[in-house]
Amino acid sequence: PREAYIVTIEKGKPGQTVTWYQLRADHPKPDSLISEHPTAQEAMDAKKRYED
């Protein structure tokens, strides 16, 4: 089974940042970016789909 994890990042100019959620996995390479999402819920949904 595949495993993934969610990383929170800040995008934008200082003082005007927006939080994004990255879905990452250690396949095919360590810390590979799988997808980016504007909400934590979307990231969790993507994580479930990826791991299923």
Rank of each mutant, 00 (worst) to 15 (best):
P1Y: 14
P1V: 14
P1I: 14
P1H: 14
P1E: 10
P1R: 15
R2P: 11
R2A: 09
E3W: 15
E3D: 10
E3P: 09
A4L: 14
A4W: 10
A4S: 09
Y5S: 04
Y5G: 01
Y5A: 02
I6M: 04
I6W: 02
I6C: 02
V7P: 00
V7S: 05
V7Q: 06
T8E: 14
T8Y: 07
T8M: 14
I9Y: 08
E10T: 13
E10I: 13
E10G: 05
E10L: 14
K11N: 04
K11P: 02
G12K: 05
K13H: 13
K13S: 14
K13I: 14
P14E: 12
P14A: 11
P14K: 11
P14W: 08
G15K: 05
G15T: 05
G15E: 06
Q16L: 10
Q16F: 14
T17W: 12
T17V: 10
T17Q: 11
V18N: 08
V18W: 08
V18C: 08
V18L: 09
T19Q: 07
T19K: 11
T19M: 09
T19N: 06
W20D: 01
W20L: 06
W20E: 02
Y21C: 01
Y21L: 01
Q22M: 03
Q22V: 04
Q22R: 01
L23D: 01
L23G: 00
L23N: 01
R24Q: 03
R24D: 01
R24S: 02
A25G: 07
A25L: 06
D26G: 12
D26C: 14
D26K: 14
H27C: 11
H27Y: 15
H27P: 03
P28V: 07
P28E: 08
P28K: 08
K29E: 14
K29A: 12
K29I: 13
K29G: 09
P30I: 10
P30E: 08
D31A: 13
D31H: 13
S32P: 02
S32Q: 09
S32C: 07
S32Y: 12
L33A: 04
L33N: 02
L33C: 07
L33V: 13
I34V: 08
I34R: 01
I34F: 02
I34N: 01
I34W: 03
S35G: 03
S35E: 02
E36P: 00
E36C: 09
E36I: 07
E36A: 03
H37M: 02
H37V: 01
H37R: 00
H37P: 00
H37W: 14
H37Q: 01
H37S: 02
P38Y: 08
P38M: 12
P38D: 06
P38H: 09
P38S: 11
T39C: 04
T39V: 03
T39A: 03
T39Q: 03
T39P: 00
A40V: 15
Q41N: 08
E42T: 05
E42N: 04
E42W: 02
A43C: 05
M44N: 09
M44L: 14
M44G: 06
M44R: 10
M44T: 08
M44E: 13
M44A: 12
M44V: 10
D45P: 00
D45W: 12
A46E: 04
A46L: 02
K47G: 02
K47A: 05
K47N: 02
K47H: 05
K47R: 07
K48F: 09
K48H: 10
K48L: 12
R49G: 06
R49A: 15
Y50I: 05
Y50F: 11
Y50S: 02
Y50D: 02
E51L: 10
E51R: 06
E51V: 08
D52M: 15
D52P: 05
D52E: 15
